[in-house]
Design a protein around this nucleic acid. Sequence first.
DNA 1: TATTGTTATACTCTATAACTATA
DNA 2: TATAGTTATAGAGTATAACAATA
Lengths: 172, 172
Amino acid sequence: MLLTDLPFSSIAGTPDLEGRLSPTACQHLRTWLRYLSCGRLIENEIRSRLRREFNTTLPRYEVMAQLEQFPQGIKMSDLSRHMMVTNGNITGIADQLIKEGFVQRIKLPHDRRSSILKLTPKGKKQLQAISEAHNEWVCSVFGQLSDQHINAMMGALQELKKHSQDFTQPTH
Amino acid sequence: MLLTDLPFSSIAGTPDLEGRLSPTACQHLRTWLRYLSCGRLIENEIRSRLRREFNTTLPRYEVMAQLEQFPQGIKMSDLSRHMMVTNGNITGIADQLIKEGFVQRIKLPHDRRSSILKLTPKGKKQLQAISEAHNEWVCSVFGQLSDQHINAMMGALQELKKHSQDFTQPTH
DNA sequence: TATTGTTATACTCTATAACTATA
DNA sequence: TATAGTTATAGAGTATAACAATA
């Protein structure tokens, strides 16, 4: 985890940058650095609690949570597109979850290349336990923000999401 | 990268949760999921550009940016505390940066266990180039937010920072 | 005894690419 | 030819722990 104990500056050396950058640009940089810092702090704590309390990882939890949204099962390639991760990664994570008995892999009869992934009853139960804890953790942090702050953040994130998508898919 | 193409729901299966959670808790969860999603999108794009355009990584850049703030050099153990990373990691990252000629390791005469790390002139020059690009990247995203959104975000992050620190250092 | 830094080890996650079986 | 999935490989990034040198 990084950048957490510095007042404003961090990875890009804000003190120096304040001299070089326009105040507006500097403000943008500060915003990103603080964003990154808070996010890492929370995400790493969640990772560590998932490990400690449920012996699992964030990607494994994310896959299980995705599967919950497709009770009829989802094809591995669809899942990998959905989660923006390569096929091989899904295979690996699915293997672990199957070994633990949380997920089952079912061959499709009409397309013998494909298989779908599905939560097992055991997996559903486990996911429910994890989700419950996870949601409490998140609420224990975000629940301390005022409604104004939450709404402001949500609005800003909605904007940010659009622009971050442009950023990652540049038009060229 | 994950969770980016879903409207609201994502890792924790919001649609289901909306039935189970209080609207407030649900809003907190949504906020966090969107926060995570946007952050990952931007961070991964930055990582990929750092690799492509400067053949470096985010942690290596972060270490260099830290070193810029200590022109007189900083002890490795201080740096590892500062960056909240273990000693061994700093050794590894420093080794890479030294091999590339961006950083020098200087033994302290008065404490022969310790050494300090310092940017070389080549490292300073490289850091400047990277920072310049990095700042442009960040501004190209955050610069598209209105001043209101930036200010709102900054205010919310300031609050969030406090609470995320409580979250990671629970009082027990 | 405690601290500094290195080394060894292991694990998770990721991407790339070669491969197979099937379509 | 294209697609679905697996496997192999490599490389970040991280943590833990043993260790040597020094304080």
